[in-house]
């Protein structure tokens, strides 16, 4: 069914080259543009100049944050689509991002001092709660893929409305776009250090366990009868989704559509087993988010469009395209 499935290695190589290009562009482009060569030079030998500080303290953390967040969301998306066997699943469409977002916002208002690394824990709690609810819905077996996605999106809408409500009630309307759409404007290294351990650990576990995830693609009865412990594998995948998506929301807000689209792009290009999809998603996510961020810098120049808005503007029509494919199949 995947006509023109390409060699995964070649696709991976192309992704990496494009990613490198996006990273360089991300370092060079902005309100004050740097020539690419100068940017590269400063990247490898900082000279203490203002440009050097720009590269090292502003642009590089931003690119790194986009990369880690993109990887987290993409891997989480690939995992959740496998786990629920639902091509419309993603941390966003199942409300997991919004759940994390809501709990963080509540915690920030109740305990303003938790800013920083402490925000990952409420994010995990929120992501886990919604993730569990959606999991319970999906195993109840009364909803088809589309109904389940609709339920998740309704949940996401309610959670987003609550976030909006809380922020307006606390006169923090300026934070709304950040906590509804997500953004990596003003990224700092401190944020990168918060998410990086989860990206590395989560990514590593996902890749090591990747070959076991194939069992999830079977329905529960079949995989049980095959003697595989689907429940344990499923639990691990669920934990990974919560950790990856939760930590991403904690540092960048609920950026949408990356987790939904990346696995589809990868699957379309290479088809194939879940391990390949996972690996390539981990590269494609950072590529997509960095590219979206670049677009966001030029779309409303000199103002910066938060990257979450860019991903939604691109993602919503693409989501329709996926629906279309679902219908044709």
């Amino acid at each position: 069914m995947h006509n023109g499935a390409s060699n995964p290695l070649a696709v991976g190589a192309v992704f990496l080259i494009l990613l490198a290009g996006a990273v360089v562009a991300g370092i060079a482009l902005g309100v004050s543009n740097l020539p690419v060569l100068r940017a590269l030079q400063l990247l490898f030998s900082p000279d203490g100049s203002a440009d050097s500080a720009l590269v090292w303290d502003v642009r590089l953390p931003r690119v790194a944050l986009a990369a880690t967040v993109g990887a987290n969301l993409a891997i989480a998306g690939a995992l959740i689509q496998t786990l629920t066997r639902n091509p419309l699943a993603s941390p966003q469409t199942f409300g997991i991002n919004a759940g994390a977002s809501l709990v963080i916002v509540v915690c920030l208002i109740v305990w303003p001092e938790i800013r920083g690394p402490g925000m990952v824990w409420p994010a995990f709690a929120g992501a886990a709660a919604i993730g569990f609810a959606m999991w319970a819905l999906s195993v109840s077996g009364t909803m088809n893929d589309m109904k389940l996605a609709l339920a998740g999106i309704s949940l996401q809408l309610v959670l987003a409305a609550l976030v909006q409500a809380i922020l307006i009630a606390n006169n923090a309307a300026q934070d709304i776009v950040y906590w509804l759409a997500g953004s990596i404007n003003g990224a700092q290294w401190s944020k990168v250090w918060i998410i990086l351990p989860f990206t590395l650990a989560g990514g590593a576990v996902a890749l090591i366990a990747g070959r076991h995830f194939d069992v999830l693609a079977l329905d529960a009865t079949t995989s049980l009868s095959l003697g595989q412990n689907a429940r344990r594998v499923g639990g691990l995948a669920a934990l990974l989704i919560v950790v990856l998506a939760g930590s991403a929301v904690a540092v960048s807000g609920p950026i949408g559509f990356i987790g939904l689209l990346v696995p589809h792009i990868v699957q379309r290009l290479v088809g194939g087993d879940h391990l390949t999809v996972l690996v390539l998603s981990a590269i494609c996510g950072p590529l997509l988010l960095n590219s979206a961020d670049l677009l966001g810098r030029v779309a409303a120049f000199p103002a910066e469009t938060p990257v979450g808005i860019v991903t939604a503007l691109i993602g919503a029509p693409t989501f329709l395209l996926i629906l279309w494919k679902q219908r044709v199949r």
Partner: peptide, 26 residues
């Protein structure tokens, strides 16, 4: 199809919302 219609609406809403947020940035 009814579920498809609903999801098209959802995508439409997300798009309109993003567009609105974009205008807010402008």
């Amino acid at each position: 199809g009814i579920a498809a219609l609903a999801l098209v609406g959802v995508a439409l809403g997300l798009f309109a919302q993003a567009l609105m947020q974009y205008v807010m940035v402008l």
